[in-house]
Design a protein around this nucleic acid. Structure first.
Lengths: 337, 337
DNA sequence: CTGAAAGCGCTAACAG
DNA sequence: CTGTTAGCGCTTTCAG
């Protein structure tokens, strides 16, 4: 007969096993100095009562909990959803619970989420920071382990794991150049996000290496969402000397671009997307992508956070993951004529 | 000068405002019986110290927290991601934090997530139950508010909010029949999930009303994921008298079906998808869907949970949301010939 | 209307 | 190696 979890307390276990509550605590927490015999007795009582440590009391006493806070732009966005999912899997395996929050890219909401999680005494924080002032973070976090994901904040004190944005932008653009394109458009969101800015730098560098000075009208940094791209792409294609290829630097712009290209029968326009998306591999032509692997990002970030939580120190580190180019067809199209 | 949140305690506030900690507690919790004058003094001290109630201590003392547990099949699945996102938005607005967990449709993992959340003393639980035994739930949950989402469990004690699965299946099939189809395939996952089973019932009923006895081979209940559908659809189309239309009862099967239809040039096959998905509206032909609105589901479920948390009783209720049919093209294709 | 004291369940000193 | 005592920050009898 197992009692409902969480009902029995250390006192119950102590009484049943005939030891003091401290000894119970020691056994439960795996402290070394307990006689095997006593340990057995306690463990038997624990099993019999179905005793589970009350995490709330534990947290109040120790000041930390078995919960990690995760803060992303949006939970429904496929990239962040995959990221959050990877994080949850790995944290669960390590015995942690996940407190989740979204910012909607609103700095005020982000701040609120951070504060809320700090109050909950999370054991660590995984944060995708917005493009905004983060000077509050070091003081707010104190010595709480924090790992920044994807983007970095404007403070240097934290571990950060991201991807080679600039390399990805460079590789995508070079790939299109190699397939004969000279007029290549850039689609992306606000360059206030360093990731976007870096992808744009990679694009510019690749063009410069090919001796190409991009027409400013090719560069659209107003495409944060799919509908933006559905407006931008037709405008690009209506230019006097229209681009024959597009490097889309985020998945939303990519899906917008794909949909409008398909709808207008312009599937001859080459396309490389930074970030994979649903159906990218199966529409025709399939979309070539720079693969920003959210699960790898998740695992790397969690592992780093767990290191920190377990006290492994060292200075703040910046881990940068490579982003392979996956050829699927759309990026290998050659310009007409 | 505001102190870092969470630092000051009731004692600090009491000392500064010259009252007892109990009075501070009363003011902070909005209890009625405090003199306006004292209240002002306390509030001033609270503001000055940047006092924020320690939720952990509060939770230990009261037995509940300001956190709600949310358990879904998968965080990365677009439907559940949208659902979780809607839940988070609405709970945040109500001042609650969100503890999230996924089950991967594994009953053991589900049980573990539920237990973990109960231990954390969540204020309520939002659960998408798997097709499995839930007899443990009533005892485990005790009087904790629980709202089931999308699917119901095999126990009757809980509120549940879902959609009209059978109506949706019926409407989708009838829609295809009206456009001249007689041979309509059903694509779906395991009928152990009541939602799938009900959609299938709707499909069968609609066919029966049209005097059609479906060929058993038209009915594929082995399509839980996109790749399954990519295998099933070509097999369906290779039948002697192949279906001219498909009712796909989940988004994954739908994306799989779409991709294989496009790749094989069979975009003449009519398709209605239960559940919307990315790009459904913008590929060609655009995919007609039965719209299973995850945000509406989220809001309804959260509202019901908040009612329960605030003590509004009443017997367990089953709330069923309608699912409109959105015509986009693929569902209005007529059979060839 | 307000305060003193007890205790939620746990862990950390400090003795024994 | 083990037990006693105190206290994390909060709410809550029960007096005043």
């Amino acid at each position: 007969m197992i009692a409902p979890s969480g009902r029995a307390t250390v006192h119950d276990v102590a009484r049943l096993s005939g030891v003091s509550i401290k000894t119970v605590s020691r056994v439960v927490n795996g402290a070394a100095e307990v006689t095997p015999a006593t340990r057995e007795k306690v463990l038997a009582a624990v099993a019999q009562l179905g005793y589970v440590r009350n995490p709330v009391a534990h947290s109040l006493r120790t000041g930390v909990s078995g919960t990690v806070g995760v803060i992303v732009d949006s939970i429904s966005d496929s990239f962040f959803a995959a990221l959050a999912s990877g994080i949850e899997d790995r944290l669960l395996a390590a015995g942690f619970s996940v407190l989740i929050g979204s910012t909607g890219r609103d700095p005020v909401r982000e701040r609120g989420q951070v504060d809320r999680m700090l109050q909950q005494k999370v054991a660590g924080l995984l944060l995708v920071p917005n493009a905004s002032d983060h000077s509050y973070l070091p003081a707010a976090a104190g010595d709480l382990p924090v790992v920044l994901i994807d983007r970095s904040a404007d403070v240097a004190d934290f571990d950060q794991v991201g991807v080679r944005d600039r390399d990805g932008g460079h590789a995508a653009t070079t790939h299109l150049l190699r397939h004969g394109h000279r007029r290549i458009a850039f689609l992306g969101g606000t360059t206030r996000l360093e990731t976007v800015a870096n992808r744009l730098v990679g694009y510019r560098e690749a063009l410069a290496e090919a001796g190409i000075e991009p027409d400013p009208r090719w560069i659209r940094t107003d495409c944060d969402e799919a509908p933006d791209a559905r407006i931008a792409v037709p405008q690009l294609l209506a230019l006097p000397d229209p681009p024959t290829a597009i490097f889309s630097s985020n998945q939303h712009a990519s899906t917008g671009a794909v949909s409008v290209l398909h709808r207008t029968g312009r599937t001859d326009v080459a396309l490389v997307s930074f970030g994979d998306f649903d159906l990218a591999a199966t529409i025709s032509p399939a979309v070539s992508v720079i693969h920003q692997n959210p699960r790898a990002l998740a695992e790397t970030a969690v592992d780093r956070l767990l290191q920190r939580i377990s006290g492994a120190g060292g200075p703040a580190e910046r881990i940068v993951l490579p982003v392979p180019l996956i050829e699927r067809g759309s990026g290998e199209l050659r310009p007409a004529g």
